[in-house]
Simulated scan of single mutants.
Amino acid sequence: MNQLNSKNFNNATSTNLDKRLGSLDLFDQAAPLVSIGAWSCDLANERLDWTDGVFDIFGLTSVDALDRESAIELYSEESRELLERKRSQAIEKRAGFTLDASIVRPDGIERWIRITAATRGSNGRTEMLFGMKQDITDDRMRWELLRAQAECDPLTGVANRTRFQRFLDQSSNGVALDDIGTLILFDIDDFKQINDRWGHAAGDACLVNLADNLRKAFINAHLVSRIGGDEFAVLLPSSISRAQTKVELQSLIGSLLRPIQWNGCLLTLKVSVGFAFACKDGKYNPQTLFNTADEALYCAKNRKIFPSD
């Protein structure tokens, strides 16, 4: 009876081993279909182990010398900083993480990868990180295209209110706020009268004309956005000085006041402007900046003059 049980155990063990080997073989065959591979890092010596799938994603071959210091240099600066932070937290807490990161391969091709990581260790100490890396570049491009379409004003081609709202919703210490210098708001005066007299097609022509002028005038802007029916916002970088901003605005107003040709008619366009300067240290609230610019715009519309501050 014991001999029979031993034989059955050996057969079962052999069968399970065959299944595992078969599963590994199946993974090796399927991995190239989705640009995915496995990786591990021994924390004792920072030794990396990659499957062929990961080498392919990074544009390397298995004969290339592989060390973590060289591999981490292939990540973009932002992704590298985020990876190191998540990695440190995972090691400390013995927990896994997921991260979408951008890399630049040695051949100059940029790719997006999704990293999933888990930890292994003993006696309360993390000894190894391991997981999967998958190329998600195509998915990322499709997502970016969908987001761009969702955040684009279909009439004028500039960004819509949804995109501008992402700026307003940032926290006061958001990284993206450091390079904001000026917020400028533009509003077409008596826009309703244009629609009433000439029709909505004429009003649309005015909106398209204004959007085109703003894009051409502020080619270095972080954002040109239509945030309301006849209201536009422009976000300028901090590299453009306050004096330069005022000069460019004064010059732009002249071009905006030129009549617009539409169906053989000349449409007179009047635009009011309000703006606010961000703190030079980047410590400000986006909503407060918007409120300040909006108040300046309100004063300009009532006074019918170009704001001086």
Rank of each mutant, 00 (worst) to 15 (best):
A90S: 15
D107N: 15
E248D: 12
G181T: 12
T119D: 00
T119Y: 04
D169P: 01
E92P: 02
D179T: 13
S40L: 07
A276C: 08
D187I: 04
P286V: 01
K280G: 12
A65R: 12
E127I: 01
L48I: 14
R258T: 05
A205T: 13
S14T: 11
R142T: 08
S225E: 08
T162I: 13
W143E: 14
Y298C: 01
L269S: 05
L4E: 13
I136F: 01
A296Y: 04
K301L: 08
N213A: 15
G37Y: 06
G274W: 07
K7R: 06
S172R: 01
L249P: 04
I72Y: 12
R111W: 10
G53Y: 04
V271R: 05
R114P: 04
V54L: 03
G228P: 10
R161C: 09
P237S: 08
L235V: 07
L82V: 09
F55I: 08
N291G: 07
L33I: 11
A118L: 11
R163L: 14
L17F: 06
E144K: 09
R163Y: 11
F164H: 11
D153F: 06
T13W: 08
I57E: 00
D64C: 08
D18S: 14
N220L: 09
I194H: 01
Q3F: 11
S88Q: 15
G53A: 01
N10L: 13
F167Q: 00
T156G: 06
F9W: 09
P106R: 01
T119M: 08
G274A: 07
R215N: 15
F191L: 07
L177V: 02
I91E: 10
E84P: 07
S225L: 08
H222W: 03
F130T: 07
D139E: 11
K192C: 02
N11P: 01
L289E: 03
L24E: 15
A217W: 00
A176S: 12
V175A: 15
I260R: 11
L210P: 09
L24C: 09
G203I: 06
R87M: 15
T98N: 14
N5E: 13
N220I: 11
F167M: 00
E46I: 03
D204I: 03
N209K: 12
Q170M: 00
I103C: 02
G199R: 04
N209S: 15
Q3A: 12
L177K: 00
F55L: 07
P106E: 04
H200N: 04
L146A: 12
N8S: 13
